[in-house]
Design a protein around this nucleic acid. Sequence first.
DNA 1: ATTAATTTAAGAATCATTATCAAAACACAG
DNA 2: CTGTGTTTTGATAATGATTCTTAAATTAAT
Lengths: 135, 135
Amino acid sequence: MKLSRTVQRKVIVDELRKLKCHPTADELYEVVRKRLPRISLGTVYRNLEVLSASGEILRLGVGKKQMCFDGDTSRHYHLVCRCCGAVEDIMPGDMGGVEKELDSKLAGRILEVSVNFSGYCEKCASLVKRNAQLS
Amino acid sequence: MKLSRTVQRKVIVDELRKLKCHPTADELYEVVRKRLPRISLGTVYRNLEVLSASGEILRLGVGKKQMCFDGDTSRHYHLVCRCCGAVEDIMPGDMGGVEKELDSKLAGRILEVSVNFSGYCEKCASLVKRNAQLS
DNA sequence: ATTAATTTAAGAATCATTATCAAAACACAG
DNA sequence: CTGTGTTTTGATAATGATTCTTAAATTAAT
């Protein structure tokens, strides 16, 4: 699928870049509507989707629609795969001195149990690498 | 509101602790249903809510129902406030050598733009601290 | 300009989550 | 234990964010 350059798409990116906050789709919709009063909310959603897929903008959060839970409240982290959505545990031992530095830099404001990373799980990371070599 | 110890609540915690994955509410519902066939999905949701509020279990993700977006794709991080939901930028400069260490530990699998922390924003952190002193 | 592919607007549909409410389970004082 | 007030449950309805559908409009590539 080729990406066309439409007025709507351009305004959406443009307004999102201008904002210093991290708006939800409908918040951005309200902003964009000032320039394009006839744009629909669906168009905003559709474009945020393709734009984040292509890397032009960021989508924050775990990337899954559903919330998920963990019964293990001991100190550990999570890597949420951007590709397949898998949630992988990262144990403190895997992280060297990162924790101590985070603690000192953010002065205890980080909840020990809820640091979430987003990236690729091992399986998808190798898939991505393989695809990169092919193209 | 006092927390009663109900069979349902105990089984929910118990099964969640036994699972090594990070289930969604309905996935956990299916597991719990094997022990309590008459439990309702609403009960699972309600309990996951109060249990994560009391710290007995973890709720993964940004904690907001809505997805949010960022037009700035430069390398930076986000702190999502567990208390008010505010999303705060954390710039690489604020983090000392943390990034380099993360890069080496996770071998480039972390997407540079999407590391999300969860904790308290400055405002809520001071509120929490104040409340702690009062009690 | 012609034509094929993509995108749009509007609204309907989906589906995760939350709210409602009467009945059941629980806590606790006596 | 037993009554009484509180909390929780199950069933279901309601909500609300997101996705889907469709015909018409726009865009890209001849």
